[in-house]
């Protein structure tokens, strides 16, 4: 079984700050990591390969340093990696990103594509579904349980919904997006990390991909971010400090009434 896992390198979210003047993310000094949801995708792919044989290809579109995210996925057990990197890819929205990934994937054989449900920086959860549309294959999103039929031709997936979960069956090839709980991503070990550095890693630029530059990167992005801003800080509550409990209760009632709570 041939499985492709598209991944993204993201800034560690706990550290992200926004420049108040420009409204853009301050990335200087913020460490980059493999998107945590992608770890579930990588783990799922490796488990399928271990059970059914085959090959796992990790693919990312990103700047040169995004290679670290590929190494992490290779250290977990991916077999080979493809790094789409070119200045022309920069500034892509979800559409241009999915389009670029699709151009590469169209050249490849695959039975399944497994994505993380979303990246923790943009949180859009769009690239996976868009990719399935561009490739013309079925998609099952927010998957928390995954199994193969005995003949290996269909998957049965449990997909999370607001109310519970749905059990969905689909023929291969199919695109899955993985959510937390699908599995426990394995921890990399020394040997895995060393082997990762020796696994095949193909670097592909815009020319090699052979795409019209108007369809990729900033130019190929129909949407643009106008402004990024942190949510308004919640202001602190009030503290009632009257010594007499009756007086305190009175103040509380007045406050709640003013707020329309009672």
């Amino acid at each position: 079984m041939k499985i492709i896992v598209p991944v993204k390198q993201v800034p560690e979210v706990a550290e992200v700050k926004i420049n108040p003047e420009t409204g853009t993310l301050i990335r200087d000094g913020v460490p980059s990591i493999l998107n945590p949801f992608d770890e579930y995708a990588v783990e799922a792919a490796i488990q399928l390969k271990e059970a059914h044989g085959g090959e796992v290809t990790i693919i990312t579109m990103g700047p040169p340093q995004a290679v670290d995210a590929l190494y992490k996925a290779l250290a977990m057990g991916g077999d080979r990696a493809i790094h789409l990197t070119d200045r022309a890819f920069a500034g892509a929205d979800t559409w241009a990103t999915a389009f670029t990934l699709a151009q590469q994937i169209k050249k490849m054989e695959f039975d399944m594509i497994i994505c993380g449900k979303q990246a923790i920086d943009g949180d859009t959860a769009q690239v996976g579904p868009e990719l399935a549309e561009l490739l013309g294959i079925p998609q099952i999103c927010y998957v928390r349980h995954l199994e193969m039929s005995e003949d290996g031709k269909t998957v049965i997936a449990h997909r999370e919904t607001d109310e519970g979960y749905e059990v969905v069956k689909a023929k291969l090839p199919v695109l899955i997006t993985a959510t937390k709980g699908l599995n426990e991503p394995r921890l990399p070990n020394i040997m895995g990390i060393m082997k990762a550095k020796k696994k095949p890693l193909e670097v592909v630029d815009a020319a090699a991909l052979g795409v019209n530059e108007d369809l990729i990167g900033l130019k190929g992005s129909p949407t643009a971010v106008r402004k990024v801003f942190p949510p308004e800080k919640r202001s602190g509550g009030i503290k009632i400090e009257a010594e007499d409990p009756k007086e305190a209760a009175k103040q509380l009632v007045e406050f709640l009434a003013k707020k329309g709570a009672i």
Partner: peptide, 22 residues
């Protein structure tokens, strides 16, 4: 790996990381 093996451990059974999250 050799040194670990000498003392009943191995690099396969280790937990290793290159990045900040690990």
């Amino acid at each position: 790996e050799m040194v670990l093996n000498n003392h009943n451990s191995s690099s396969e059974s280790s937990w290793a990381g290159l990045d900040r999250t690990e």
